[in-house]
Nucleic acid binder design. Sequence first.
DNA 1: TCGATTTAATTATCATGATAACTAAATCGA
DNA 2: TCGATTTAGTTATCATGATAATTAAATCGA
Lengths: 155, 155
Amino acid sequence: MFFLKTLPSRQMIEGYVAKTREGDSDTIEQALSLLRNASLLIRQLNTYFRNNDFSQLRFLVLVVIDREPERNSLLASELAERLDVSRPVLSRTLKGLIADGLISAKADDRDGRAKQVSLTGSGKQKLSDLMPGYFRQICFFMNEQETEVFQQGQY
Amino acid sequence: MFFLKTLPSRQMIEGYVAKTREGDSDTIEQALSLLRNASLLIRQLNTYFRNNDFSQLRFLVLVVIDREPERNSLLASELAERLDVSRPVLSRTLKGLIADGLISAKADDRDGRAKQVSLTGSGKQKLSDLMPGYFRQICFFMNEQETEVFQQGQY
DNA sequence: TCGATTTAATTATCATGATAACTAAATCGA
DNA sequence: TCGATTTAGTTATCATGATAATTAAATCGA
C-alpha cells in the first residue's frame, strides 16, 4: 500500500529531483500515480472481501486452483509458485480454507511431503458467488478513475 | 497488495466475464495489470526501506511534514488527514519516529488535546539520505516495466 | 548405499495494518 | 452555562503480512 492521499505537486517533485540529481520528474509522477491508484483499488477490493467474510488472498487461492486447465488439483508448492506470498502465509491460508470446507487436501501419492489441494463444491460456489461483485468493484473503480485522474494525464 | 504472479489469460477473463455477465474484459485486464505492477513496485520500495532500517510509512510521514509550505510543524491530526492510515497506526509510527529522534512533538498552545509535530535535524538528514535511493528504485522499476509489460499494452 | 543436500511444509515469532473502546479536551446548543 | 456531542489522541486487541528455524521426505553423488 501507498498511503499518501495527495501526491506531491509537480513543483515539489522537480525540487526533489533537482536536489537529489536522481530520476526524472515525469517518471516519478507516473509511478506515484500508479501506486496511489492501485492502493485505492486494493482498499476497495479488500473492503469488498471483508464485507463477504473473505479475503483477497483466499479468493486468489480459489481462482488459481480453478483456472488450472485439465486439472482439478494443485500441489501446495505449485500454489506457492503462482502466488506472491510467503510459504507460511500460504500454509495458514490453506488451513483456514480447509477448515471452512472450501478446499480439500490430501497427501500426494508420489511425494510424502507434498499436498494435493482441490476445490470442494462450496469452494466452487464461493468463487462464483464472489466473482460478479469482484468485477463490479473493479469496473466501478475504473470508471470513476476515468472521469478523474486518468483524464488529467496523470496516469 | 495483489498476489497473483501471472495474470489470468485474456481467454480466462472473457470466460469469467461471460459467466458473470458483469464488467468488460478490457477494463478487468487493465485493472489487474495496474494492481500487479503497483504491487511489484511496492515490494521493491518496501525492500529498499527495510534495507535502510526504515519503512515506507515512516518515510511518508517525514515527506508530509517536510513538504508543508510556510510551516515547520503539523498537527498529528493534519498528518492523519494527509495519510491514508488509521489513527492508531499513525500514533504508533509517530512514537517510533520520536524515539529515534527524527521528529519532535510538543503540546499545541491552543488545543490541549493536539500535538505539534516537526522534523528534527536528523529527521531532515534521514529524508535527504533516503530520497535519492527512493527515486532510483522508482526509475529503475519504471524502466524495467517499459521494456516488458507496458509495451505490450497491458497497462 | 548412505551421508549431505535439497525440497515441502509447518511452527514460532515478529511487524505492521485494522477496529473497538477509552480518556480527555473542546465545542455546540437549549 | 452546563449537559451532550464532537474531536484528538491512545490503549487493547486482532488480522495478516514477513523471516528464521524446524521436521521430514526426497534426491544427489562419492
